[in-house]
Design a protein around this nucleic acid. Sequence first.
DNA 1: GTCTAAGCGGAGTGTTCACTCCGTATCGTA
DNA 2: TACGATACGGAGTGAACACTCCGCTTAGAC
Lengths: 213, 213
Amino acid sequence: MTLATHAQRPLRKDAEQHRQQLLTAAVLVFNEQGLDASVTEIARVAGVGVGTLYRRFPTKEALVDALVREILDTTIQMARDALKSPGGTGLERFLEASSAYQAEHAGYLRRLWNTDHEMVKTARQLIARLLVDAKKHDLIRHDLTNTDLSLAMFSLLGVLEATLPVAPDAWRRHLDLLIAGMRPAASDLPHRALSPATLDKVLATHKASLVSE
Amino acid sequence: MTLATHAQRPLRKDAEQHRQQLLTAAVLVFNEQGLDASVTEIARVAGVGVGTLYRRFPTKEALVDALVREILDTTIQMARDALKSPGGTGLERFLEASSAYQAEHAGYLRRLWNTDHEMVKTARQLIARLLVDAKKHDLIRHDLTNTDLSLAMFSLLGVLEATLPVAPDAWRRHLDLLIAGMRPAASDLPHRALSPATLDKVLATHKASLVSE
DNA sequence: GTCTAAGCGGAGTGTTCACTCCGTATCGTA
DNA sequence: TACGATACGGAGTGAACACTCCGCTTAGAC
């Protein structure tokens, strides 16, 4: 939860506390109002001035980035934990746990998979291992790919964004459906999966469009 | 494609033409830049002044509404056509056809299911009939509900929004997965489906949040 | 051809943001 | 306790946007 990332010299005690208050407030406000929430509002909720916010985070973008790192951090940890699950059940565990966690941060989830950071690569590699493991135990159909799982994430995001305020658990039912579709079956899925290279391009482009607007 | 909706007295010939140009331009621009695209840009692409745009559509919201009606109109027609399909295959046909069509209007799809208009009710009733028919022929699992289909729509929207510019067909693969999950299976989906009433509330709230921001 | 209701363009208006600047306050060391 | 480095607040700035207003233009009825 603390997510250090201290650069060089540690912050003064009060400054560090304000930094934490800002991060907490940002989570709260973004979840309530979405990414369009104003920085002024975040500062207000945190109980500090906008000046303080901007001394700690040079742009609004940087603030969101810090939150995203925090999510990625937790997600990676969840994937690592899931790898210890017996009998190839790790993937399903991970999908459920990470969705539940992400449901609490849906306000800025779109930024999650669109960062260049090493962390995204790490997360995707871990998930790939979960998929291999699940296939090995015949819990998941063999024609399912890593890119399919990425699409499934976007799909859950779409459901989350639509339902969260009113039906905070609706994503569970949808995940049920997705997992049912992932089970081994007599015939392969009709269309070809996205290539990893294409998916990378998707993520890169998506990021660009989020920034430009 | 023409979507009359003339109020009382017909528009002057040039005015009607400008109206069409504006609608066409709006589709183009919203698809390229999303709903945040500026009204000025739409007018520019249409080759008219902003004044003209505002004489035809009193607010930006009204312009989007006109586009949404156009999509709903087509979607309803597709559902009607699908009902004529033999052997309970109508639902799958409809899901594919309407997704393909909606992929060309992804820029403002979020507004689709959030209008109060009679058309949404009509569309949902038709889709419900498609579902009943598919179940009758044992093509779709019996514990699947209408609200599940709505969630599936949001899910596809999430995929579309993320992939469209780079991989315009990615949604097909995801739809494959969804449909695979909808097939009859030995056990029911673990979690309970959303009630229709809750879904209605979801849509209403979603709309409100779109307007306020 | 004339006349007028209908339509037009785009500068202007008010508002909302992200972000900056600087006079003041506080931390923490000696 | 004193003092410099660090941090603070929030008014101010410029840009972007939705929407309005009004002097000019044009369609189309006679």
